[in-house]
Amino acid sequence: MGCVSSKQFNRAPQHEDPAILAKETTFSVSEVEALFELFKKISHSIFRDGLIHKEEFQLALFRNSNKKNLFANRIFDLFDLKRNGVIDFGEFVRSLSIFHPETPLGDKIAFAFRLYDLRGTGCIEREELHEMVLALLNESDLFLSEEAVEKIVDQTFKQADLNDDGKIDPDEWKTFASKNPALLKNMTLPYLKDITMVFPSFILNSEV
């Protein structure tokens, strides 16, 4: 007898009211409804249960559900606000809102800090930064010697770790990121301003 993953037979979850999500985020109600079109597409790509699983998230990002990428994992975990292994529609909208061009820079700085604080200790430690640089080298075609990696991490700490205690705290990160706006470039997705044009079919399904 064949077995089918139980993930495929869950009832579709109730999604949060677009008006409430619009109130709590940078999006308008129409934009939230357009995002629902995108959410449906991603959350039905493999398991069809109305929730985004990590494999579906990776498939949407890389066209490959098994690709290993430290930062895709980190982003998924940060989107998964309830920490239950899946992203529901409310989590999707609230998290994407950080990437909206009109979201305050402070929110983007705070999100980037959580992204880099791998172990959630409240500080970015030297070892974490070293680990992230090694991970990106492994996952890309870049090659740097161990000596060069050490030098880059040392230099970064010299610039960012203002009290020289071997870790970057949220205030130090804020100062460093404010002086280096290039670090936050990936924290803004211009597409989000045009989301209703990318998914015009939201009008057909609009409840508002």
Binding site: N69, F71, Y116, L136, V153, N180
Partner: peptide, 24 residues
């Protein structure tokens, strides 16, 4: 890459573009 700070290197090379979500 040695001229970049580690965070710049990560944000430029992490192979992650959330914009791909919209092309999915």
């Amino acid at each position: 890459p040695e001229a970049l700070n580690a965070f710049e290197l990560i944000s430029m090379s992490a192979g992650l573009n959330l914009g791909n979500l919209f092309d999915s």
